[in-house]
């Protein structure tokens, strides 16, 4: 007898046209927002000095990115965010996995992690300035610190909550403790680790922008936003806010896509 049970066929998607229309739904909100923005800007309710039209802002954005110096600021913020993130990930994932592999170890530092996780990282900026000065390094370190807490917490949590059944299965197949750890525990923790990495890069960007405003710097989007505001260059301020938002969104999407690829088994 041969093993050929057929898998139930997935039902073919009907009505492709309507489905394509559904895909455009997220744009509705964007359209409404730009519409309202435009209405308010042209209605005269708000001083035009404070609120340029969306088109003026968008064209300022494109011009500044392609011909102006916005790209330099953009690039500086991206580099800081990624340096902070990488630092946090390289330290945080192994540390989290280690902490998670011993319940007792984790319980003994749980309070510390939870405490600092609940402390707004921006509150710690002055302390970091004391230790590391107003250097570039200082901004990266503080962003890395906030990302680190999230990454450690999530990785540890992932390992702690690894499914018992898979651990047992590996044991009964003859895996020793190290093999169980690397083949099962670490893999089981990956979905949660990715959540940590994604929140980590988000918080790193937030802190980098705040630090750039607060500590000051030569280049960076945070500095650009605050400078533009000071001299009432509102078009540039809105354009810089928009590009910062786009950056944050793109990072999130990038990590979600990476997550989907690596953790192909999640939810199955």
């Amino acid at each position: 007898m041969t093993a050929t049970l057929s898998k139930p066929q997935r039902r073919a998607a009907g009505r492709p046209f309507l489905q394509n229309l559904d895909r455009l739904l997220p744009l509705v909100g964007v359209g409404v927002m730009f519409g309202l923005w435009w209405l308010i800007a042209v209605s005269g309710w708000v001083n035009p000095v404070l609120l340029p039209t969306p088109w003026a802002t968008l064209s300022a954005l494109v011009t500044a990115m392609t011909t102006g110096d916005m790209f330099i600021d953009f690039f500086a913020s991206v580099v800081r965010t990624f340096s902070a993130f990488l630092l946090a990930a390289v330290v945080g994932v192994p540390l989290g996995v280690l902490l998670g592999s011993s319940e007792k170890l984790y319980r003994s530092v749980e309070f510390l992690i939870d405490f600092f996780r609940s402390t707004p990282a921006s509150a710690l900026i002055p302390m970091f300035i004391l230790f590391f000065g107003v250097s570039d390094f200082s901004k990266v370190i503080i962003a890395a610190f906030s990302a680190l807490l999230l990454i450690v917490f999530n990785s540890a949590y992932g390992v702690l909550n690894a499914r018992q059944s898979r651990i047992l299965a590996a044991k009964v197949m003859g895996a020793n403790r190290w093999q169980v750890f690397k083949d099962v525990l670490v893999m089981e923790s990956l979905p949660q680790t990715f959540i940590g990495l994604r929140s980590g890069i988000s918080i790193a960007l937030v802190i980098v922008i705040v630090a750039e405003m607060f500590i000051g710097t030569e280049q960076g989007l945070g500095k650009r936003i605050i400078d533009a505001q000071q001299v009432l260059n509102v078009q540039d301020m809105y354009a810089s806010i928009l590009i910062t938002g786009l950056l944050g969104y793109a990072l999130n999407v990038l990590f979600l896509l990476g997550e989907k690829r690596v953790i192909h088994w999640s939810g199955k």
Partner: peptide, 25 residues
């Protein structure tokens, strides 16, 4: 195991799952 879904290692292909007991040795 009763619950095959929770006993398979879903990050490994079916082949690698079957081969796992040999590999750990």
């Amino acid at each position: 195991f009763q619950n095959y879904r929770e006993a398979m290692l879903p990050w490994l292909s079916a082949f690698d799952n079957i081969a796992y007991p040999l590999r750990v040795k």
